[in-house]
């Protein structure tokens, strides 16, 4: 290995480390994902995914935020479709309870569709 090889190696690794640090700082500041809860088209509340919480929505549905995921754990409707849905954590994912007109949508945070395009 010549000297130039080592310089290039160090420069690339350094650039990667700096970029990574910048992205980390940028991501930690403000662009965190939130769960937006709407009832009958009107906004009920916005809850950050990085804080664990238990939210009662009009006494009909119970939404739990835990481990950066939003999960509907109970509902008073008979079909329980929303309860059986997977926890939502990525941008654009939704949990819908039709009988109670409750929609939980994840906004911001990790893009779900980038993976397929970038390879």
């Amino acid at each position: 290995m010549k000297k130039g090889d080592w310089i290039w190696l160090a420069a690339v690794l350094g650039a990667a480390a700096v970029l990574f640090a910048i992205y980390m700082a940028y991501q930690g500041r403000g662009s965190a994902a939130v769960a937006v809860v709407t009832v009958d088209g009107e906004e009920f509340g916005v809850y950050p995914l990085d804080q664990d919480a238990q939210i009662w929505i009009n006494g009909t549905n119970e939404l739990v935020i835990r481990g950066h995921e939003a999960d509907m754990v109970s509902a008073d409707c008979p079909d329980q479709v929303c309860v059986n849905q997977k926890p939502a954590s990525r941008n654009g994912e939704t949990i819908v309870c039709l009988p109670n007109k409750v929609v939980v949508e994840i906004r911001g945070g990790q893009e779900a569709e980038v993976d397929q395009v970038a390879n």
Binding site: W8, L9, V12, L13, A15, A16, A17, L19, F20, Y23, E111, V114, V117, A118
Partner: peptide, 23 residues
């Protein structure tokens, strides 16, 4: 090219990983 195709700068998030993997 990926940034041009997707018209998003967000993919640059992969850049550090790809730099290291490239080296």
């Amino acid at each position: 090219v990926a940034m041009a195709v997707v018209e998003s700068v967000g993919i640059a998030f992969y850049l550090p990983v790809l730099l290291v993997s490239g080296v």
